[in-house]
Amino acid sequence: MISLLIDTSNRPLSIALNRDDALIAEINATVKKTHSGTIMDYVDKLFKIADIDKKKIDRIIVARGPGSYTGVRIGVTAAKTLAFSLGVELYSVSSLFVIAASTGREGIFAPVFDGRRGNVFGAVYQIKEDCYEILVEPQYMSFDALKGKLKSFNSPEVLLDRDEKFSAGAGEFTHTVPRITAVEKYRAALKSEGVHQLVPEYLRVSEAERNWLEKNRL
């Protein structure tokens, strides 16, 4: 089975073609370019590098968020439209889990993305050889709250991209950028999606809606 994997949730870009969970080709970049300009160009290049016909893929796996709203939207839009156009299955994976899996190691990991004003989008996973456990579900919370939760786990590791801005004061962390090729073997992390139904997992309503809800609270 051949899968195309896509993650543009934050500043880095990670795309890969896997055959039966194993890497055929991948492009990972932390170059400061807009995903909107690069993603489809790089997907095209990826197929050329792998020497695979796009019509031969069986499924697409996309990082659904959380992350940069625009970044996630671009990956999800490209993945949806490709799956629709090529008539292949579509799966999503949490962008936070992509980071945990990208370590390639076993352990307890707390991947975090900046959520502004001391807040983060974060989760806690325990990764073993071919399986994993969600210890804290992906959510938007203060970094302090997450650190509180981490106290109950055995030597957890905070995973963060040191080149992304981070408003919370990171403390000790392991610099980690996404390599989405790594997620496919964790079957339970892959969620089957309807092409039309898939929307990004923002984990936050937009600011305008938040203000509106506040004003119109009954």
């Binding site: 909107s36 993603i39 489809m40 997907v43 095209d44 796009k54 709203y69 625009t70 939207r73 671009i74 839009t77 490209a78 949806k80 439209t81 490709l82 156009s85 090529l86």
Partner: peptide, 18 residues
């Protein structure tokens, strides 16, 4: 811009696929 990018990436994916 954010709105444009959805249409543009969908158009690019469609044009690439076909």
């Amino acid at each position: 811009i954010g709105a444009l990018l959805v249409g543009i990436n969908a158009a690019k994916a469609f044009s690439f696929a076909h």
